[in-house]
């Protein structure tokens, strides 16, 4: 008995020691990775604080520190910065919510229903997104021009049109990601609910969606970031300055290398990263929180 206890105690102690040691290592690894992740961003932050500086001209970061560029962006009439910011948030959040919803609907069907062409369908939606987007801008311009002649509300130069274009990518590799996650939710849960008299829609909306919250949060965050950072399509679709997004408005400041205003651009990029971080913080509890654990219990 006592020998066994002793062994257990020793095992536990060594386990604890090992864990502590590995935590130290983990922090070292985490710090190294943090430096790798942050180093280029330091240049961007430094450039944003130096109103006359360059982006990569000097390794003496933070030589000059001032908030001129931020002030210039926020206060000036020539850049409707806050409007762009608001537009980006509206477009990004709408796209994220709708993408998640459309994707989850499809993933639910793929995961829970058996029908002909299921595998082919799954494969096709991923393959469609692999097509080189060489002519995407030209095609989307033509398409939205034509749509706008019929339904001006979602035509060229409308935010609804841009969101629709983004929703074209709602089914895709992210659906596959959700599909994989849906598959890990035991079908017994559906069956129990069905016995209770719930319809498929109710099961989907009230039970399944909550169980797959982590992946919904991840996909939502990804599509938010994608639409926040897109300027290629947005710059063709949105023409009026007051309708444009942050990415479009900011990119214009540096598109001509001779007149590139890297300081203002960097300041804008720093501010634009705030909603992304905020959304991540907000979603984090869904991504890694106890919701899943709680429900599966």
């Amino acid at each position: 008995m006592s020998a066994l206890d002793l062994t257990a105690a020793r095992l536990e102690r060594s386990g604890r020691r090992r864990r502590r040691k590995s935590h130290g290592l983990r922090h070292v690894a985490a710090l190294v990775l943090s430096v790798y992740a942050l180093l280029p961003l330091l240049y961007i932050v430094s450039a944003s604080l130096n109103p006359t500086g360059t982006l990569t001209g000097s390794n003496r970061l933070f030589r000059l520190v001032g908030l001129d560029s931020y002030r210039r962006l926020l206060a000036s009439d020539q850049f409707p910065f806050l409007t762009w910011f608001k537009n980006s948030l509206v477009i990004g959040l709408t796209t994220a919510v709708l993408s998640v919803f459309l994707g989850a609907l499809a993933a639910y069907a793929f995961s829970r229903m058996r029908f002909r062409g299921r595998r082919t369908g799954l494969l096709t939606i991923v393959l469609v997104q692999m097509f080189p987007q060489l002519l995407a801008v030209v095609a989307i311009f033509l398409l939205l021009t034509r749509i706008g002649e019929l339904v001006p509300a979602i035509g060229l130069n409308t935010q609804a049109g841009l969101i629709s274009v983004y929703l074209g990518a709602a089914l895709g590799v992210n659906t596959y990601l959700m599909y994989g996650y849906f598959n890990t939710v035991p079908t017994e849960i559906d069956e129990a609910a069905r016995v209770d008299g719930a319809g498929h829609m109710r099961i989907f909306l009230t039970i399944i969606l909550r169980l797959v919250a982590p992946i919904l949060a991840v996909v939502g965050l990804l599509s938010f970031i994608t639409s926040m950072n897109d300027f290629v399509i947005a710059s063709v679709v949105l023409i009026d300055p007051e309708k444009q997004t942050l990415a479009v408005g900011l990119y214009r400041m540096v598109s001509n290398p001779n007149y590139a205003d890297w300081s203002a651009f960097a300041a804008g990029a720093v501010m634009a990263s705030i909603p992304v971080v905020a959304l991540f913080l907000f979603l984090q509890k869904y991504i890694v929180g106890g919701l899943t654990a709680g429900s599966t219990k």
Partner: peptide, 17 residues
């Protein structure tokens, strides 16, 4: 379940292709 997403896919992605 798939129609809503497919409508957007068909209009915007498939058109580009």
């Amino acid at each position: 379940y798939m129609a809503p997403g497919l409508v957007f896919l068909a209009i915007f992605q498939v058109f580009v292709i």
